[in-house]
């Protein structure tokens, strides 16, 4: 019993060190655990696969630096997938910080696939208003976003000549870390205009979106870094999502071990009393 008592009073900083090691070691020495692709991720992949070259998708960058490790990898994976299939991508942002992450994903993927700004993709930047912006863009993109993120008129760009409103958009994907974000697209784009909507969200908010997925309101769902890793597996291009999976699995295993251990102590302590 003495061991139990000592372990009960253990300094929590030892737990922090163990978690840190569980993250650092797999990043330095990758184990490459197999990544199983879940159905919600595969659904979004299939939806993009079914689009023909020249189709147009709308990506909404609705996240910021605090959720970048989770959402940016899936953002990049989706942009890469679209570019590999010659699908045109229009980016907008309901979060001001989302603009630069969208730009970064475009820059990386455009270099890899030789895509040109204004012809193959465009970033229309941020607009305040959340649900009102989505509603207005659904009716008329040019009125809602008259300029791209640099301030140039969108009439200058060939990609926008055939895209007037959501009727000309084949798929909408919101990379979302909260509100405004995916819910606005479900309610307006899917609910009112019947558009196909997919999403990549932070792990914290993923459970809240499963009901929409089950109801057919979402075409696919990527939840957290795991979702990004699964999508990277499907497009066969590893990124931060894949690199982080070993660390994630080991850290999760350690946390499960701690939860079991804490419960054993709790039950043992109760019996003693």
């Amino acid at each position: 019993m003495k061991v139990l008592e000592r372990l009960e009073k253990i300094d929590r900083r030892y737990v922090f060190i163990l978690i840190l090691l569980a993250v650092v070691i797999p990043l330095l020495f990758p184990i490459n655990f197999k990544i199983e692709v879940s159905e919600p991720v595969a659904m979004l992949y299939r939806t993009v696969e079914e689009l023909s070259p020249g189709s147009c998708v709308l990506f909404s960058f609705d996240y910021g630096p605090s959720t970048m490790p989770e959402v940016y990898p899936m953002n990049l994976a989706l942009v890469r997938h679209c570019f590999s299939k010659d699908i045109k991508v229009i980016g907008i942002a309901l979060w001001p910080e989302g603009v630069q992450f969208g730009n970064e994903a475009f820059r990386v993927a455009a270099d890899e696939y030789g895509k040109e700004y204004g012809i193959d993709y465009i970033n229309l930047g941020y607009k305040a208003g959340g649900v009102v912006v989505v509603s207005a863009a659904a009716e008329d993109i040019a009125t809602t976003f008259p300029q791209d993120y640099t301030g140039r008129s969108i009439e200058e760009f060939p990609i926008m000549t055939e895209v007037k409103n959501f009727d000309n958009i084949d798929l909408i994907v919101s990379f979302s870390a909260g509100d405004p974000g995916t819910r606005e697209y479900i309610r307006i784009a899917q609910g009112r205009y019947g558009k196909k909507v997919g999403t990549g969200v932070t792990a914290v908010s993923a459970p809240a979106f499963y009901p929409y997925l089950n109801a057919g309101q979402l075409q696919g769902l990527l939840g957290g870094m795991k979702g990004a890793a699964e999508y990277e597996t499907l497009i066969q291009q590893s990124g931060l999502g894949t690199s982080g999976m070993d660390a994630q699995s080991i850290a999760h295993g350690l946390i499960i071990f701690f939860i079991v251990l804490a419960n054993v102590f709790y039950i043992a302590g109760r019996r003693k009393k």
Binding site: V23, L28, A203, L240, A247, Q248, A251
Partner: peptide
């Protein structure tokens, strides 16, 4: 329980993001 599990996953992901930054961008070990 599912929500809590996802929350743990999110927090660990953020830690991975920072550690990856330190090891990759700063120390350039990986």
């Amino acid at each position: 329980g599912a929500s809590f599990g996802y929350t743990v996953m999110a927090r660990i992901s953020l830690l991975i993001g920072r550690v990856y930054f330190l090891l990759h961008n700063w120390l350039q070990l990986i």
